[in-house]
Design a protein around this nucleic acid. Structure first.
Length: 580
DNA sequence: GCCGTTTTCGGCCCGACTGTTTTCAGTCG
């Protein structure tokens, strides 16, 4: 079973346990285990036979290792079976409604036999909720709205949409005299591919205790607000019209570092950090790191000083997922993560020859403006007819135009000739080897393989990448690989053979499609498969999306040397040949 | 259920907001 599926079962058990009123600490240990499993770089299915190795994962002890083994063996645990016999699985959906926690779910179930979103809706309409203790008009109304919102959108937002919303809100907040700094925190700062809600931190003289009231009022008056969820002393929560939930905190300068640390999360990271603080005689809150003995402040203004006071190197937000980063920071062994400035080239982009918007020269100029030393023009091959894909003849013509344009650049940038070739149903390619041999970069993608029997896909991908001219395994293969369970792909076999795996930035992806997982990038790197990050730009402006790809690599803990297109051109090209 | 410079028992992160209450429970991040 895939790690993610195991994690889901453990998390589900935690939810059910919570509804049943179980021991909070036992619940927490299931949650911790779920996160540990999800973040594990190694597939647990390979570890499950060896309890000793399972137990080396922090948060997994003897009992949890046994649970995981049983999940691997038969898909559930005795505790989970018992809980599911008592509670309907649809109860778990109820937990997703705002204002609905385990206690309320249990109450609704036990007193009204309400066990699903549908039944809750019916109970609200029938006025049954008002008979329960603690259920006033406001709570019932909140649940009614919650059900409506749940039906409307239960998804997360793409990083770039969240970033855009954050920038707009920042501009508005900064108009208010005395708000001097606005910083996005939460999963946006951690660079998650999708963002569930937006955490925004604001500070400045206006956020001091005696004046914050006006700043809060200004925040709550933000025009795009669809509905206000909460307004407190220094916190405002609301939904934007897009449905994105935003939490704004207005805090005095003195506690900005502690607040930024706190609101950046992740939750797991923060819990681990607080435990460490306690051991060292401190207490950490969103206001300060303070000494337990007398409550005096040890650090609060900046993140660096807080981490330093706890004996840690500053931890980049992308690594704050509670997966060993604190231990690494204590041992001074955090990786020096790749930076955008390390990149020397973007090697996947389209032009007007197929479905791009710009010419070769325009793409090259845009790349020069972004400081690149080389690019590759990689239009589609003929199998993607709807994009006007290139056949052998047009591909040769395109190579000639690229070479010509490259010469005209007079060394300002190198333009490589490339192609995004399709892996056909039988594992063959839709351009001839004679043409592929003249390309500098051949990205093999799997558009048409989706139609094929799933159990044969591994063999077909392997056959395709055996072609000596194929240099990068590309889109949407990456996503396919990640859903290896669903598509029955042998990820390890493929990564062992592939020269390089492309990490693409999907400029037009939906949240469901954008699910490249950090662990797979690490795994690919460990298997000796090169990593290439590129944008798949169809327009010059798409080149700016590279920053999202960089965030993904950073979250996977990758360094400059792990990524091929940080290298000078000759070494980049050499890196595309497996084993060299 | 996990974990150990508090080490095999007895701990386990912290604070704010809301609604329905008059001292607090539940939810949330």
């Amino acid at each position: 079973m895939e790690n993610r599926a195991i994690a889901r079962l453990l998390g589900e058990t935690a939810d059910l346990l919570e509804i049943s009123g179980g021991d909070p600490f036992r619940i927490r240990s299931y949650r911790r285990a779920a996160e540990a499993v999800e973040n594990s770089a190694e597939p647990l299915s390979s570890l499950a036979r060896d309890p000793k190795r399972l137990q080396q994962i922090p948060g997994i002890g003897k009992g949890m290792a046994a649970n995981i083994e049983e999940i691997e063996a038969r898909g559930s645990t005795p505790l989970r079976d018992e809980l599911l016999a008592r509670y309907h699985p649809a109860l778990l959906e109820l937990l997703k409604l705002p204002g609905m926690g385990p206690k309320t779910v249990a109450l609704l179930w036990e007193s009204l036999q309400v066990g699903s979103v549908e039944q809750l809706e019916a109970a609200i309409e029938a006025g049954k909720l008002r008979t329960l203790p603690r259920f006033g008009d406001k709570l019932v109304e909140k649940l009614r709205r919650g059900v409506a919102d749940y039906r409307k959108n239960s998804g997360r937002f793409l990083l770039d949409a969240a970033e855009e919303a954050a920038e707009q809100l920042s501009r508005y907040l900064l108009q208010f005299g005395g708000i001097t700094r606005v910083t996005p925190a939460g999963s946006l700062r951690r660079g998650r591919e999708t963002v569930g809600d937006l955490d925004i931190l604001a500070t400045g003289p206006a956020c001091a205790e005696d004046t914050v009231r006006d700043a809060v009022a200004h925040t709550a008056a933000y025009p795009p607000i669809a509905d206000l969820i909460a307004k407190g002393q220094n916190k405002v929560s609301f939904h934007l019209r897009s449905g994105l939930q935003v939490d704004v905190r207005l805090l005095p300068e003195a506690s900005y570092g502690a607040a930024l640390q706190y609101f950046t999360g992740s939750k797991t990271h923060n819990i681990a950090l607080r435990q460490r603080a306690l051991k060292l005689g401190y207490s950490l809150s969103e206001y300060a790191l303070s000494r337990l003995e007398d409550g005096s402040v040890a650090a609060s203004g900046g993140e660096e000083e807080i981490y330093a006071a706890l004996g840690l190197d500053w931890i980049p937000p992308e690594l704050r997922e509670g997966s060993g980063e604190i231990e690494a920071a204590a041992a001074r062994s955090l990786p020096a993560l790749i930076e955008q400035a390390d990149l020397r080239g973007d090697v996947h982009m389209h032009t007007r020859a197929t479905d791009g918007r710009n010419t070769i020269a325009e793409m090259a100029e845009a790349a020069i403006a972004r400081g690149y030393e080389y690019i590759a023009i990689t239009d589609h091959s003929k199998n993607l007819a709807m994009t006007n894909g290139l056949d052998d003849r047009r591909a040769l013509e395109q190579i000639r135009r690229i070479r010509e344009c490259d010469a005209e650049m007079e060394g300002r940038i190198r333009i490589l000739a490339g192609i995004e070739v399709d892996i056909l149903g039988d594992g063959g390619l839709d351009l001839s080897n004679e043409v592929l041999a003249q390309m500098d970069v051949v990205i093999a993608s799997v558009h048409s393989l989706f139609q094929q029997p799933r159990e044969e896909m591994t063999a077909r991908i392997l056959k395709a990448i055996e072609n000596p001219f194929v240099t990068i395994l590309g889109h949407p293969t990456g996503r396919l690989l990640l859903r290896r369970e669903a598509y029955a792909l042998d990820l390890v076999a493929i990564l062992k053979r592939a020269a390089a795996l492309r990490v693409a930035v999907e400029h037009n992806a939906s949240p469901e499609r954008l699910d490249l997982r950090d662990v797979d990038l690490r795994l690919a790197s460990e298997m000796g498969c090169g990593i290439v990050v590129n944008t798949d730009a169809h327009h010059t402006s798409h080149l700016d999306k590279m920053r999202y790809g960089i965030r993904q690599l950073r979250r996977a803990g990758l360094r400059k040397q792990d990524v091929l297109n940080t290298r000078p051109l000759p070494e980049f090209l050499a890196g595309l040949r497996r084993g060299s």
